[in-house]
């Protein structure tokens, strides 16, 4: 039997396709033993998680430190000690730079000098989730802007998109820079973006966010969609502001600055 070149190529091609299809089938028909997934029955539930930070109640440096330390130690947030590689989930900034569009020259001195606690705003219309090319950062139905470190490709589009500077990138391996490791929570790897997760791992196991717990009542956490919730009542009674409201992102973190 003689096979010319054309025929040889034809059969070779067909063989390749055959092998490919067979291989794909092996892949698809892999056994599945599972029965199902379900949320925990002891998790906290809300339609729209939100936070109120009552800055009036933060008096000493210690008050801020406790809150930040609670978050960063639980989530294995590294401390690089330099602003270039810095990673932070919650931190302080002075009033002028926290609210650059709301600053005037004649605010009371105690407000002007008071540090503001900053964290991810978990915006309703989050620009970061809009730009992410892999859905590594995404909105959960309960309003939390989540970040999937397994999927993040490290393009940092979300960092350019976030108007609040809430996102940090792992420029280097974070592990050597974590002072006290919490073995219950993972770290991150170099090359992914991270930020505050509103303590989703705690909420889903029935606990409030670590910062709220550590603040001892200076910060509130609850369901913005429920008119009867604690934070809704608090917002009804106190005048609150949010960062850069003109951008239409609808932040879920509210600040109470002054007044009784």
């Amino acid at each position: 039997m003689s096979v010319n070149r054309r025929e040889f190529l034809k059969y070779a091609g067909l063989t390749c396709i055959g092998i490919g299809v067979g291989g794909a089938q092996l892949f698809v028909t892999r056994a599945k033993a599972f029965s199902g997934y379900t949320p925990t029955n002891y998790g906290l539930k809300a339609k729209r998680w939100a936070m109120v930070i009552d800055l009036r109640k933060f008096e000493h440096e210690e008050d801020y430190k406790k809150v930040i330390e609670a978050c960063h130690s639980i989530h294995n947030v590294p401390d690089f000690g330099n602003p270039k590689d810095e990673i932070k989930w919650i931190w302080t900034e002075d009033f002028e730079h926290s609210f650059p569009y709301q600053m005037n020259h004649y605010v009371p001195k105690e407000v002007e000098e008071k540090p503001v606690l900053l964290l991810c705003n978990h915006c309703e219309h989050a620009p970061c989730t809009r730009v992410c090319p892999t859905k590594a950062t995404f909105k959960r139905p309960d309003g939390i802007t989540a970040q999937d470190y397994h999927r993040c490709i490290g393009c940092r589009f979300c960092m350019a998109a976030c108007p609040y500077g809430a996102r940090s990138f792992n420029w280097r391996d974070p592990r050597p820079y974590i002072k006290h490791i919490n073995p219950e929570f993972p770290t991150r790897m170099p090359g992914v973006v991270e930020k505050c997760n509103f303590c989703v791992e705690r909420i889903e196991t029935g606990k409030k966010p670590a910062c709220v717990e550590a603040s001892e009542g200076k910060m509130l956490f609850g369901d913005l969609a429920d008119p009867e919730s604690e934070i809704r009542r608090y917002l009804d009674e106190h005048f609150s502001i949010r960062r850069k409201p003109h951008l239409g992102t609808q932040p879920a973190v509210f600040y109470i600055i002054g007044g009784e």
Binding site: F34, S35, Y37, P39, F138, A146, E204
Partner: peptide, 9 residues
């Protein structure tokens, strides 16, 4: 992580 279902049956 993505669906908030932390229990596997």
């Amino acid at each position: 992580l993505r669906e908030g279902k932390r229990i596997y049956i």
